[in-house]
């Protein structure tokens, strides 16, 4: 019995199979955001359809739901009513803000005119806000508490239950 072969082989086998077994449960596309727990980067962006510039810090004192989306993003269409309805329901307690990037302003105004809106939608400047927030795709939603700290990030279209769960977290 060659002890060296057995030992080296056992180490390689255990390490390899162990790592692969661990990895089987994970989704390689699910990346944690490093911004959770940090102050949300401040920005002032143009509201769609007007020339008004809206500053994120104006909403300090209330939890904020910050949703990145675009009109070419199919799951965002499904998410839109969830956001507009909940925004209306929670209006005074929670501030909803939408940021659109990589899109055409006319398409955005048409979209909103057709489907309605209950909270401000801002237009990003060359994707710089998205980059500062580490946005990879759309839709992605950040939940800020009343101090402006990011308490959670959700990637993908939200459902009402998920949304309310995260809002609860932001209100704590």
């Amino acid at each position: 019995m060659n002890r060296t072969v057995l030992l080296v082989g056992a180490i390689i086998a255990a390490a390899l199979v162990g790592v692969l077994y661990f990895a089987l449960g994970k989704d390689p596309q699910a990346i944690d955001s490093p911004l959770v727990g940090r102050i949300a980067p401040d920005f002032a962006l143009k509201a769609v359809g007007s020339n008004e510039s809206i500053d994120l810090s104006r909403y300090r004192g209330k939890p904020v739901v910050l949703n990145f989306w675009a009109t070419w993003c199919r799951p965002c269409w499904d998410e839109h009513p969830v956001l507009t309805q909940n925004a209306q329901a929670m209006g005074d307690r929670v501030q909803f803000v939408g940021v659109v990037f990589q899109d055409d302003e006319k398409k955005i105004t048409d979209f909103l005119r057709e489907r309605g809106w209950t909270y401000p939608t801002l237009v990003d400047d060359r994707g710089k806000t998205a980059i500062a927030y580490g946005v990879g795709g759309v839709p992605e939603t950040f939940f800020l508490d009343k101090h402006g700290t990011i308490v959670a990030k959700y990637t993908g279209p939200l459902s009402t239950e998920l949304l309310q769960g995260y809002v609860q977290k932001a209100m704590r």
């Binding site: 072969v5 057995l6 082989g9 056992a10 199979v17 692969l20």
Partner: peptide
């Protein structure tokens, strides 16, 4: 993964 683990262990034991 199960097959890989099996063949890996069998080969190592046999080699040893």
């Amino acid at each position: 993964l199960v097959f890989l683990a099996f063949i890996l262990v069998a080969s190592i034991v046999l080699l040893a």
